[in-house]
Design a protein around this nucleic acid. Structure first.
Lengths: 210, 210
DNA sequence: GACATAAGATGCAGCAGTGTATCTAAGAGC
DNA sequence: GCTCTTAGATACACTGCTGCATCTTATGTC
């Protein structure tokens, strides 16, 4: 039906950062949206993670999002996939240094991410009946083993540890404890805690497991 | 003003359970509401924890809730306070049995509660800037020590363990690991895991700490 | 039995998000 | 330059929750 009195305020300008007046397309647009989506997720959790909020933050409009990700979950998974980076595994030649360095990196990195991915996503987990465990598994590069397992393997190869079978529980204990503290306090661990976990708990168990 | 055509379908009947046709009041009503609120919280998390949902579930109406708890947070805290029970600490006379029995109880009980209180409440934590840690501390009877600490104390008194200083990290390790698994899987641990945690991790560390 | 209190029903304005449809215009490819 | 795709704006109907106001009526107390 004819003219419904719309009066185009100004062309556009996507209110983003540089705002060159140019209109974003394809990959560039998609990246900008997913970055905006990540920020929204960090700031407001899954509950505040609405098409409305993400579109506004990205300086675009909801239809643009709906065209790419019909469901909120699709947008969420795309956002996570783009922003999740595995923590680098150090190789210093000494078990204790490897462990402490790795856990420090983990602590710094996941103090942001784990809180987002586990705590903020609680509603997502409830809605879908999945758990943090499932999500982690689906984001970890398939076939790769747990970081601490790699570190222990190297120590065994160097002869730093006896070559005896160890349970996953023991191998991942230090990782689990750091994650536990992150979840409980929703904040990074003090460095002393990391050293304590390695020296008082993990290493003694690894050495005693013979 | 005047008759606005309302035609009172039927008196009421609060659609609850027994539905004796009697109208609930005071304490009975409050209990019923808080029970309903707990169910809503378990089923739908803090996000779905609306005055609307709780009132419907309780078979009452929103004004009744607003009169008692003006804010959603008030209703939440009342609901938690009513439904949080500390896990009973066993006293079998043997350290290992005490630990395994306690952790089994914890596992069964918190598989429902911790998931609700930590995961489902994520939005609450985000909104208020508190953490699960803070909430646990405020719900644990003040002055009482951690359950595993009590169990270890008794073992030391019986001479089952050497009387050496132990860090909180070690003392609470078994508890923390159970909690960690609960959070990660959002489900109860298999019984083997509890036994493994006690026999392969916690007891060796307690004995070696001399 | 009269009265005060409070339960419970209902209405309503407001707000935020959803999902979709429609239109204009920018920009890429030919 | 022309055309095709699609970004971006806007509108609309719908849903669900919020606070609050108002009314009726059940129930306990005197």
């Amino acid at each position: 039906m004819g003219d419904n009195g719309r009066t185009r305020a100004r062309p556009e300008q996507h209110s983003g950062s540089g705002a060159t007046g140019t209109r974003r397309r394809g990959r560039a647009l998609e990246d900008a949206i997913l970055d905006a989506a990540w920020e929204v997720l960090v700031d407001h959790g899954y509950t505040g993670f609405t098409f409305e909020a993400v579109a506004t933050r990205a300086g675009t409009s909801r239809p643009v999002l709906y065209r790419r990700w019909p469901q909120r979950e699709d947008l969420l998974l795309a956002t996570l996939a783009k922003n999740w980076q595995p923590v680098e595994i150090p190789d210093t030649g000494r078990l204790r240094d490897d462990a402490i360095t790795f856990l420090r990196r983990l602590n710094a990195d996941r103090a942001r991410n784990v809180v987002v991915m586990c705590i903020q996503l609680a509603d997502y987990f409830r809605d879908t009946g999945t758990s943090f465990c499932d999500l982690r598994d689906s984001l970890r590069p398939s076939g790769s083993s747990a970081p601490l397992q790699v570190i222990v393997c190297r120590a065994v190869e160097r002869g730093e540890l006896p070559d005896v079978p160890r349970t996953d529980r023991i191998l991942n204990l230090a990782f689990d404890l750091v994650r536990h503290d992150l979840l409980m306090t929703m904040d990074a661990l003090p460095d002393e805690s990391i050293v304590e976990i390695v020296d008082e708990v993990w290493l003694p168990l690894l050495k005693a497991a013979g």
